[in-house]
Amino acid sequence: MDNSESSQSVRVAVNIRPLVTSELLVGCTDCITVYPAEKQVQIGSHAFTFDNIFGSRGSPCSSIFDECVVAPLVDALFHGYNGTVLAYGQVFSLTT
């Protein structure tokens, strides 16, 4: 793992799940506006900026692992470095 600032800092990504069919059938709408170029989401009058935005109108979920640079972090763990990857909620849905 290199000593660049990005490998030393906390990075925060958000994965916005799209509405599911049952939600769409009862008339639910997105309450989040995504601004991918600014890496921001807006909920009501509040805007939040993240290092990465995935999911609804952002990048596909399959790119989370790569773009959040998780692989080098996991590799560094086996070389004695400390690291944390915290995933809250449904992160991946696997299909076969």
Results as ranks from 00 to 15, higher is better:
residue 56 S to M: 09
residue 35 Y to A: 06
residue 72 P to A: 07
residue 77 L to Q: 12
residue 96 T to D: 00
residue 31 C to Q: 15
residue 53 I to W: 02
residue 3 N to A: 06
residue 27 G to Q: 10
residue 38 E to L: 03
residue 58 G to T: 07
residue 48 F to P: 05
residue 90 Q to D: 13
residue 95 T to L: 00
residue 60 P to A: 10
residue 47 A to N: 14
residue 51 D to A: 13
residue 18 P to V: 07
residue 54 F to A: 05
residue 14 V to R: 07
residue 21 T to E: 00
residue 61 C to G: 04
residue 75 D to N: 07
residue 50 F to N: 06
residue 57 R to G: 11
residue 70 V to P: 00
residue 64 I to R: 10
residue 22 S to K: 15
residue 92 F to T: 07
residue 54 F to M: 06
residue 95 T to V: 09
residue 79 H to P: 02
residue 7 S to W: 04
residue 79 H to C: 13
residue 40 Q to L: 13
residue 40 Q to F: 11
residue 41 V to Q: 13
residue 16 I to D: 09
residue 76 A to H: 09
residue 7 S to D: 03
residue 10 V to N: 13
residue 64 I to T: 07
residue 63 S to Y: 13
residue 63 S to E: 11
residue 44 G to P: 13
residue 96 T to H: 11
residue 51 D to F: 10
residue 21 T to H: 12
residue 90 Q to P: 14
residue 2 D to Y: 14
residue 37 A to N: 14
residue 88 Y to C: 15
residue 30 D to P: 15
residue 30 D to R: 15
residue 20 V to T: 08
residue 86 L to W: 09
residue 70 V to W: 07
residue 32 I to A: 04
residue 3 N to T: 07
residue 77 L to N: 12
residue 58 G to K: 08
residue 84 T to F: 04
residue 52 N to W: 15
residue 86 L to T: 08
residue 84 T to S: 14
residue 78 F to A: 14
residue 32 I to G: 04
residue 53 I to S: 02
residue 75 D to Y: 08
residue 83 G to Y: 02
residue 49 T to A: 08
residue 31 C to I: 15
residue 75 D to E: 14
residue 60 P to L: 03
residue 65 F to S: 04
residue 15 N to D: 01
residue 12 V to A: 03
residue 26 V to C: 12
residue 1 M to A: 03
residue 42 Q to E: 08
residue 94 L to A: 10
residue 42 Q to P: 01
residue 78 F to N: 15
residue 69 V to R: 15
residue 20 V to K: 13
residue 76 A to P: 01
residue 18 P to F: 00
residue 83 G to W: 04
residue 6 S to T: 12
residue 73 L to W: 08
residue 11 R to N: 01
residue 52 N to E: 06
residue 2 D to P: 05
residue 35 Y to C: 06
residue 76 A to T: 11
residue 81 Y to F: 11
residue 25 L to I: 14
residue 86 L to K: 11
residue 73 L to Q: 15
residue 32 I to C: 05
residue 70 V to C: 02
residue 45 S to I: 10
residue 56 S to R: 14
residue 29 T to C: 13
residue 87 A to R: 02
residue 75 D to V: 11
residue 28 C to V: 07
residue 65 F to R: 04
residue 13 A to S: 12
residue 5 E to V: 14
residue 37 A to V: 14
residue 64 I to V: 13
residue 70 V to A: 08
residue 16 I to H: 05
residue 19 L to C: 01
residue 47 A to E: 08
residue 5 E to C: 12
residue 38 E to S: 09
residue 80 G to T: 08
residue 40 Q to S: 06
residue 45 S to L: 12
residue 3 N to Q: 04
residue 11 R to C: 11
residue 35 Y to Q: 10
residue 7 S to V: 00
residue 93 S to A: 03
residue 44 G to C: 11
residue 50 F to Q: 03
residue 78 F to P: 00
residue 69 V to Y: 10
residue 78 F to L: 13
residue 10 V to T: 14
residue 53 I to F: 06
residue 89 G to E: 01
